[in-house]
Every structure is written in C-alpha cells, then in structure tokens.
Amino acid sequence: MILASTIRRILGQLRHDPRTIGLIVVVPTLLITLIYFMYEGQPAVFDRVALTMLGVFPFIVMFLITSIAMLRERTTGTLERLFTTPVGKIDLLFGYGVAFGVAAAAQATVAAAFSYWALDMRTAGSIGLVILIAVANAVLGVALGLLCSAFARTEFQAVQFMPLVVAPQLLLCGLFVPRDEMAGWLQTISNVLPMSYSVEALTEVGVHAEPTGIMWRDLTVVVGSIVVALILGAATLRRRTA
C-alpha cells in the first residue's frame, strides 16, 4: 500500500518534468543512431556496439537520475520527515527501484525497437531478451545510485560519482578490449564489476538464437548485484542522524 503510493508519487514527480521524460526516452536512441552512422558499412561492428550500448545507456541514465533524486530527498528534509511516518526503508528503496525500472523499461523498449527496425540491428536472439537485460541493468543503476547518494552531500558531488562508477565498468566490460585479452589483474577487476556480466549476457543474445546457460547465469549475477546494492543502500538509510 505504502509502496504503491510511493511508486505513484515518484512517477508523478517524473510526469511533472516532461523534459526529463523526453531525455530519458530520446537520448539513448539518438546516441545509438550516432553509432549507426559512425560504423556505416560495418554492420557487424554496429550490431555488437549498439547491442552493448542498449545495456549501458539505461544504466548510466538511471544511475544519475536516482542518485540526484535520492540526494534531494536527503537535502530537502523530505527523507527526515518520511522517517517520522510509517514509511519503511523497503518502501523507499523498492519505490525508486520499481518507478525508475518502469521508466527504464520504456527507455529500453524505444531504443531497442528503433535499433532493430530503423537501424537494422541484427541479433540471433530475441528483442525481448535484449530489453529484459537492459532493464535489469537499468535497475542496477538505480540500486547503485541509491547507494552512492549516501556518500554525496551536494549535487556537484553526486555527479562526480558517475565517472567513478560508470567509466571503469564501461572500459572493462569487454567492449573495447575482449575480456580474455586483458592483463590478468584487469580481468580480475572486470570479473567483480556487474556490468561485465550484463554485457556478456547481451553478447550471448547477439550470437545465439536461444537463451544460453551463460546468459541466465550472467543475468542472475546482475540481479544478485542489485540485491546486494539495495541491502547496502538500506544500511545507509538511517532514521536517526546527527
């Protein structure tokens, strides 16, 4: 009940901000179009890069939006007040997870549909799996954003977490250099970064017609990372503060 109205409240806040909705829906599609023209005449490369980006963009966008939204709850005093009401931490964490997950699903669906039908992206596996993995990655962004917002005092600090959290995952996920060609210590780092698994899962969908065991394992790792990040995020939500 409280969870449902919290989800509705967060979506309501988004609804009053059409520009943000526009950015959420349009930006990944625009960027993938840009990639399309960068690799014109190299459809195989485009397929691989675009597929990866369908997972990466929702992660970045949702991470940023969530960390700022949660930081606002802390700095405007709404969080302090909510903690004097019957709201539970779970209501807040899942509220953000579900509300922004819905936004991410819309984003991933538009971007994926556009990539397949307008940009002629090809994958052996189904578009449904691509969207599923993209949404899981977006929810991972939400969970990490909730967690990181606890370590930022200002919005300036919050945006600094973006390069810190996103860049290493993007560089080491296997897009630029295949993971098994990296130096051993880089591979070790790559192995503990959740995005490596979502990118691998997307790659599996790219080359196999049916969902593979590796894909399900990777997806499980991503979901597990979401759960861990949410638990850590719950630990940073303190009813009492100094």
């Binding site: 009940m1 409280i2 109205s5 919290t6 509705r8 409240r9 309501g12 806040q13 009053h16 901000d17 405007t76 005093g77 709404t78 302090e80 007040r81 909510l82 004097t84 009401t85 019957p86 709201v87």
Partner: peptide
Amino acid sequence: RRRIGYLTQAPSVYADLTVAENARYFASLY
C-alpha cells in the same frame, strides 16, 4: 509513527508535485 506529525523548520515537500499531490501522498502513508 502513526500517531505523530512533524513539521520541519525548512519546508519539506516535493517541489515537483502539486500541493494536493503532496498532501495525498502523505495521507496515503497513513
């Protein structure tokens, strides 16, 4: 938590919701 109401010194409502939406959200918590 169901029996007290707290007004913080600085207004703590959601700036990107209407007055009615804010009040309804807080009402729904009870």
